[in-house]
Design a binder for these strands. Structure first.
Length: 214
DNA sequence: CCATGATCATTA
DNA sequence: TAATGATCATGG
């Protein structure tokens, strides 16, 4: 098995800045929306591939790897702005209760993350262009990290005090606990699927990260 | 079957 | 446009 370090991955990805991702997806035989279906995850998958990962690593790495994320940007009044928030990692209620920020999965991913900015044209993830690749190296005493930790602690406290269901996307200044599940109903049982949540980076945070990475 | 990729839909 | 909640395809 080949080990791809962050530096290598970034180099690989930088070669694709300015390229159209849809074309690349076709080339790598990654299903997009062209099958008539709606694969919302294809951009992430293709970026992983472009970074040099040959095997699928959709499951969380065991802490020694890095994390690849893409964010879509669009123009607002002539300025490039994050269009969407960015999913960081799933929330496991039990883990959240028992784990503090710097031991959390969330932090582990966050500190070893590679961001890919992608600009859209159409609404249907139509025409994607890679505009920037950035890596982050946070320290535990960064101002920003302290604030993010505060959000984490807040969400954690709320979970312990009021329960998982009390969590909402409104919580948190930089990160939030939004719903993120398979959605719909279980085709077998016909029942509603359980609600799950994940940490998301708010747009302001995404923006800040890109400024820091400049 | 479910976690992971990340966007889509709706409302104000 | 921004914010929040809901949703889908994919792969192990």
């Amino acid at each position: 098995m080949k080990i791809i370090t962050r530096a290598v991955a970034i180099n690989n990805l930088k070669k694709y800045i300015g390229k159209d991702l849809r074309g690349l997806a076709l080339k790598y035989k990654i299903t997009t929306y062209e099958t008539g279906k709606q694969n919302k995850g294809w951009k992430g998958l293709i970026l992983e591939r472009l970074a040099g990962l040959e095997t699928n690593v959709s499951k969380a790495p065991n802490g020694l790897s890095w994390e690849l994320k893409s964010v879509s940007f669009h123009e607002v009044k002539g300025k490039l702005t994050p269009k969407e928030t960015m999913a960081i990692t799933m929330i496991n209620p039990k883990e959240l209760k028992e784990t503090e920020f710097f031991d959390s999965h969330c932090w582990n991913k966050f500190k070893a993350i590679i961001f890919c900015a992608v600009q859209w044209h159409g609404k249907n993830s139509d025409d994607g262009q890679l505009i920037k690749v950035a890596s982050l190296d946070f320290s535990e005493d960064d101002e920003l990290i302290k604030e993010i930790k505060a959000d984490y602690d807040f969400i954690r406290a709320k979970l312990i005090k009021k329960g998982f269901n009390a969590l909402t996307g409104k919580d948190g200044k930089w990160i939030q606990a939004r719903t993120k599940g398979t959605g719909g109903v279980n085709p077998r049982t016909g029942e509603r699927r359980p609600i799950t949540r994940a940490f998301y980076a708010r747009k302001e945070l995404v923006k800040k990260i890109f400024e820091l990475a400049k």
